[in-house]
Amino acid sequence: MIELQGVYKDYAGAAPVRALHPVDLSIGRGEVFGVIGHSGAGKSTLLRTLNLLERPSGGRLLIEGRDVTSADGDDLRALRRRIGMIFQHFNLLSSKTVAQNVAFPLKLAGTPRADLERRVHELLGRVGLQAHADKYPAQLSGGQKQRVGIARALANRPDVLLCDEATSALDPETTASVLQLLGELNRELGLTIVLITHEMEVIRRVCDRVAVLDAGWLVESGTVADVFLHPQHATTRRFVLEAEHVDERELRADLARASGRVVRLTFRGEATYAPLLGRVARATGVDYNILAGRIDRIKDTPYGQLTIALSGGDIAQAVRAFAEAGVRVEDVT
């Protein structure tokens, strides 16, 4: 649905800065696509090129095969009506009520009053805020403010929803509820969602695919399962370790003390819950020592990863047995 072909962005000045190096990226209709990076990585710049709040310095932006890179006037207004956006700090109008905030883009679009009121009522019901319609932003919690922002972004029935660090100002429990709402909107409306974040945990919970940015470069991309479970770039590995609350130095120290062959086992789906370790150990005579491990979910799919040290018995046979059971085996060095 969305395709970036060699898109890059330079900021002019005494010393011009390249905020985003050429990016080739495609985002499919109906998927939740995450962009992760540290501060200054270029993720906000990338997101804002999708609705042309930032004009690319070069390359092409295609929406459903149509080049919209130079869209202006009526074409630009039509493009932005199709692309809703929610923000880290909500950007609500403090002098207007919740209902008036949600109605604002409908008024700008010239929606008749009866249709406008019906649409606002529907949207507030969808985000669970009908009882707060006459309140002002200052009377709301952070999570409620973000729900108002989501309702407002959906007012003109967009095809795409852009989320600019939409959960970074929220506590963990509120973050979970907002991510759950975004997942429901994706499933129920077929909405394409593009979100940027600096937290791999957010990516893991809600996204289908992810792109990793580092200093303006796209350094890794793929399905969340592949990128999260088998990161290839150092930046991605750091994000994964942070999400798993693992201290890299401590992990390396533990691995250095381990004896035998150290491997990482990755389980997906129902294999996550199979009693495989004990079965393989009994069949091959190997001993194992668990050095690190986690069982969790990537979106709706369970996964498990164990780092173990194998010793004694027939280690090669044990590794084959794991692989034959559909478990990915990687040597850890």
Rank of each mutant, 00 (worst) to 15 (best):
Q5R: 15
K9A: 01
Y11F: 15
A12E: 15
V17E: 11
R18W: 05
A19I: 01
L20T: 05
L20K: 07
H21N: 11
L25E: 05
G28L: 11
R29H: 13
R29D: 11
I36Q: 00
G40D: 11
R48E: 07
L50I: 12
L50W: 11
L50M: 14
N51Q: 11
L52E: 08
E54C: 10
P56G: 07
S57A: 12
G58H: 11
E64K: 12
D74M: 08
A78C: 02
R82T: 01
I86S: 11
H89L: 10
N91F: 05
N91A: 15
L93G: 00
L93P: 00
S94M: 04
N101F: 02
E122F: 06
L123T: 06
L124S: 03
G125L: 03
H132L: 13
P137R: 13
A138Q: 13
G143R: 00
R147P: 06
G149E: 04
R152P: 09
A153D: 07
A153Q: 04
L154S: 04
P158T: 02
D159R: 14
D159G: 08
C163S: 09
D164Y: 06
T167L: 13
L170D: 04
D171W: 09
E173N: 05
Q180I: 02
L182Q: 06
L185N: 09
L185V: 07
N186P: 02
N186A: 12
N186Y: 10
R187F: 05
E188L: 02
L191C: 06
L191T: 08
T192R: 03
I193T: 05
I196K: 08
E199T: 03
R205N: 12
R209Y: 07
A211R: 08
V212L: 09
D214P: 04
D214E: 15
W217D: 15
V219C: 03
V224F: 07
A225I: 06
V227K: 08
V227P: 03
A234I: 08
A234N: 07
A234G: 03
T235S: 13
F239N: 10
V246S: 12
R249L: 13
L251I: 01
D254K: 15
A256M: 08
R257I: 00
R261N: 04
R261V: 13
R264N: 05
T266K: 00
Y273I: 02
L277R: 08
G278D: 14
A283G: 06
A283F: 10
Y288G: 06
Y288K: 08
Y288L: 14
N289V: 13
I290S: 12
R294V: 15
D300A: 14
D300P: 01
G304R: 13
Q305G: 00
L306M: 09
L310P: 10
S311L: 05
S311G: 13
D314F: 02
Q317C: 10
A318W: 08
A321E: 14
E324K: 14
G326D: 06
G326F: 09
E330H: 14
